[in-house]
């Protein structure tokens, strides 16, 4: 009974963390969907978000949820800047070029972060109580992160489905040349999509700090790049909504397996969750290479 209670508790936690994972991956999928570029430096932008949360909290006593608008502005500026300096030249270039470039951008951002803020872990604690779900206790900060993620994803969905710009972005995803002859400025759509994608990632980074017990450091992003790849594939690369759903699946897998692995004597479950996640990725890629929700 204790096992099932633990499992249920962990799965609940998995859903909550999964929403944040999902949000933190939407940007990767959005950028791939529109620009057909895989942002290998994804995790660096998660890290930027984490530092935004940290500094806003430590310097200005602004909590991470209220820092979301700040992350939006910083993310957009960073995304647009990088787009016009680097990414613009990579549209339609060989894949290797864009992989190397985004990899390099990621490392550059990490090194700049290390230069200014040092390599050590930093943490802050924001405590506003918790809710007892019977099976487990969930801190209110994590619940807030969950609801913020869901709300932001919904807002984005409305933006894509209901606005003219959203329709233009979808048109470019479906058929770039078809969009051109409709009078859509495709390069502007690229810039906006990259900017929005990076902004979403930075916001995801803010919310993820509420789930990191060991604190943040400049190299924390790598782990999230890997997780985001799994989630993006789960969601059928290229679809931000698929990625959001993929986040839930990943959260459940990761935290469910944590409980189950804990049953095996002599196994340290935390070290194996990543193994489980990537085994899942391999299995999915073997069975359905376009991802679980992938169309074609």
């Amino acid at each position: 009974m204790v096992f099932f209670e633990q499992l249920a508790g962990n799965l609940l936690y998995g859903i909550i963390l999964g929403a944040v994972y999902g949000l933190a991956t939407m940007g990767l999928s959005q950028i791939f969907g529109v620009l057909k570029i895989v942002n290998v430096g994804h995790g660096a932008f998660i890290m930027v978000g984490a530092y935004v949360a940290y500094w806003m909290f430590v310097l200005y006593s602004v909590n991470p949820i209220l820092s979301i608008p700040v992350a939006l502005v910083i993310g957009l500026a960073l995304g647009l800047g990088i787009f016009y300096i680097v990414i613009r030249r990579l549209i339609g270039a060989p894949e290797l070029a864009s992989l190397l470039a985004t990899f390099g951008i990621g490392i550059f951002i990490e090194e700049v972060a290390k230069f200014f803020w040092g390599p050590d872990h930093r943490g802050f604690s924001w405590n506003i109580g918790q809710v007892d779900f019977g099976i487990t206790l969930i801190p209110n900060t994590k619940l807030l992160a969950f609801f913020s993620s869901v709300i932001i994803a919904l807002i984005l969905y409305m933006l894509f489905q209901r606005t003219r710009i959203g329709a233009a972005i979808r048109a470019v995803v479906e058929d770039r040349e078809g969009a051109m002859v409709c009078g859509i400025d495709v390069s502007r759509i690229y810039a906006m999509s990259f900017g929005i994608g990076i902004a979403m990632t930075v916001i995801g980074g803010i919310l993820l700090t509420l789930f990191i017990p060991v604190g943040i450091n400049p190299y924390m992003g790598g782990e999230y790049t890997l997780k985001a790849f799994v989630i993006a594939v789960l969601g059928g690369l290229g679809s931000p909504w698929g990625a959001f759903i993929g986040g839930f699946i990943f959260g459940l897998l990761e935290n469910g397996s944590y409980t189950i692995l804990g049953l095996i004597p002599g196994v340290e479950p935390f070290s194996l969750t990543r193994f489980v996640a990537f085994s899942a990725l391999l299995v999915i890629l073997l069975v359905k290479p376009t991802g679980l929700m992938g169309g074609e």
């Binding site: 329709a167 233009a168 979808r170 048109a171 479906e174 058929d175 040349e177 002859v181 409709c182 009078g183």
Partner: peptide, 17 residues
């Protein structure tokens, strides 16, 4: 080069972008 996943009307509206 139509937007195959969108409706006829959505295609037309995008034409009037």
């Amino acid at each position: 080069h139509l937007f195959g996943g969108m409706t006829v009307k959505e295609n037309l509206i995008l034409g009037a972008y």
